[in-house]
Design a protein around this nucleic acid. Sequence first.
DNA 1: GTTCGATTCAAACACTTGTTTGAATGTTAG
DNA 2: CTAACATTCAAACAAGTGTTTGAATCGAAC
Lengths: 214, 214
Amino acid sequence: MTASPTTCDRILDAAERLFADEGFHATSLRQITQAADANLAAVNYHFGSKQALILAVFRRRLDALNKARLTRLDAALTDSDRPDLEEILEAFIVPALAFTHGSEDAGHLFMRILMRAFAERDDQLHRALSAEYAHVMRRFASAIAVALPGVDEQCLRRHLDFIVGALTHTMAENGSSNGQAIANDLVRFAAAGLRSAVSVRNLDGATRTLEIHT
Amino acid sequence: MTASPTTCDRILDAAERLFADEGFHATSLRQITQAADANLAAVNYHFGSKQALILAVFRRRLDALNKARLTRLDAALTDSDRPDLEEILEAFIVPALAFTHGSEDAGHLFMRILMRAFAERDDQLHRALSAEYAHVMRRFASAIAVALPGVDEQCLRRHLDFIVGALTHTMAENGSSNGQAIANDLVRFAAAGLRSAVSVRNLDGATRTLEIHT
DNA sequence: GTTCGATTCAAACACTTGTTTGAATGTTAG
DNA sequence: CTAACATTCAAACAAGTGTTTGAATCGAAC
């Protein structure tokens, strides 16, 4: 039999599920500790505060996710001299979906939490997360810049935002079903979108402009 | 001089800003009424409850946004017999950005709120919104299906999710700056992504599959 | 001026929140 | 065994929550 999970882990699991279902502020420590079969004071004892618990829930999964992404990115880059755009995008997208198919629907829950974190304007959380998240995004940005020479830097950053938005939104919306089909779609969708940026610029040197009514 | 805004409007404005900054549950009625220079009981008097206020904040902007989208979509469809994909996408994307450039940063705030609504698992809010939102999405889906014959229906629905995710994420993240450039990028990005779906199917009849490690 | 409906107001309601405390318990080392 | 430490527990804390209430105030219509 596996060692029974510690109080810390039970609290993290319960908090993850409740945060995903109800939101950070809407979830009370009493709900969490009751679901975790722990005493109310356990949260403040083990983590210090509710805010620190939120960060802990985050780090546990995000560290693993970003590490898997970077490992796969490195593998794609050393595979050949000229990196393949699709392989780079798979390195970013597939681990997120592998997550979803992992232990129960932990990944699915975490994607909902990740989306909340983007929505939350909580500066403390925002800063703490972007510290390591920015590093990962920069690695992928430069990898794509190599695979797709001639793409505007600012444009590339925007497109990465598109991909992050599309990924988190669909992951949060659709459950853990059809992960593979979604990954296929998103990789192709994103690759085509990225390639369109350089081809347009190479053909006529300027993008079409739209009028925006104000 | 313009007629001074009613208490209802002041409450809606204050609530919109605070909901975007702090979240639904994190903002108290006391914060809202104080910012709106109204009495605490005014919210329950005019709207009935906090939950009803949240819905009211939503409807005020979402109605206008979706109406603008559909108007522009109709214009694009009657323009010519065979609708242009880019025009359809502009009908969906540009009004959201025109919003952003409208009164102050009201649109920017509302996009953050919209993102929260997707993240929130509040079933009541979810159901109330998807009622009219689903209708708009269906209109756009069938318009794209005409402009892009041969695209798989399920695949199209997923791609619309990608676009919604990309739009809300970037709108929420970047402020009201560079709205036009973002709209240009997203329209081109989305169009290329959508076209890639039909071309792949038409060329070899099957999509590439990725292994997902679990 | 008076009456009537709509609106505002201050005060209180019952309840939940995150956090702290100090004693009780379990666990490990000397 | 005992001493020291880590962990759990029930209880209380002050502060904040959404909502309700009943009186006060306003603005027209008669």
